[in-house]
């Protein structure tokens, strides 16, 4: 699996296969975000198409030093989806309907939150196996450290360090790529 740096390099060189790789790797997340924001499959596919075409056209603007390829693509997709909602509002004078769509009652489903979930899910998938497994047990099964140790057969100290490192990795990624992070006040931070 080539890194974002390598993929960016190939993209910049005009290698269409690199865009295909990006599509295979991140197309599902882009489509998911678009579908959640727009509420229907046809518009979501249109926005996904626009996103990857824009990524191709603007491939020189991707800087692996500032974020990951997924974060960059989700940022483009979010803007395209918002443009789509706005122009729909202008065209159809359905402002009220659109407002209802863009400001979901459930705070956890804001566009920023969906982006956050997608980047954290992606990072979780990249963690070393044991870090990932222990975090899955903590997040999804709500198990405590001792319970995780019992389930996995790992010593408690090992579980602790996997979870601490795993959380630190997720946090770092979320701070780099997460949509909501930019709006948070930046405070002092200690490395975990």
């Amino acid at each position: 699996m080539s890194s974002d740096d390598e993929l960016a390099e190939r993209l910049r060189d005009g290698d269409e296969k690199a865009l295909r790789t990006a599509y295979d790797r991140h197309g599902a997340a882009v489509l998911y975000l678009a579908q959640r924001l727009l509420g229907n499959r046809a518009d979501a596919e249109d926005v996904t198409q626009l996103t990857f075409v824009a990524a191709w056209t603007g491939r020189d603007t991707f800087d692996p030093g500032r974020g990951t390829m997924l974060g960059w693509l989700l940022g483009i997709a979010r803007r395209k989806a918002v443009d789509r909602l706005r122009s729909a509002a202008r065209d159809d004078r359905l402002t009220e309907t659109v407002r209802a769509q863009t400001a979901p009652a459930d705070e956890t489903e804001s566009p920023e939150r969906i982006v956050d979930r997608l980047v954290v899910a992606d990072e979780l998938g990249r963690l070393p196996d044991e870090q990932r497994r222990t975090l899955e047990l903590a997040f999804y099964d709500d198990l405590t450290h001792p319970q995780i140790a019992a389930v996995t057969g790992l010593p408690l100290g090992t579980v602790k360090s996997h979870i601490r490192r795993g959380m630190a990795n997720l946090r770092r990624r979320w701070e780099v790529d997460g949509a909501a992070f930019g709006s948070r006040s930046v405070g002092p931070s200690r490395a975990l």
């Binding site: 599509y23 295979d24 197309g27 599902a28 997340a29 882009v30 489509l31 998911y32 996904t48 956890t108 939150r113 956050d116 979930r117 997608l118 954290v120 899910a121 979780l124 998938g125 975090l135 903590a138 997040f139 999804y140 959380m167 997720l170 979320w174 997460g178």
Partner: peptide, 16 residues
């Protein structure tokens, strides 16, 4: 950890 707990259904998205 809150975000992480909400990622379960995003881990195996269908391929585009």
């Amino acid at each position: 950890s809150e975000i992480g707990a909400q990622t379960q259904d995003l881990r195996d998205l269908p391929p585009p």
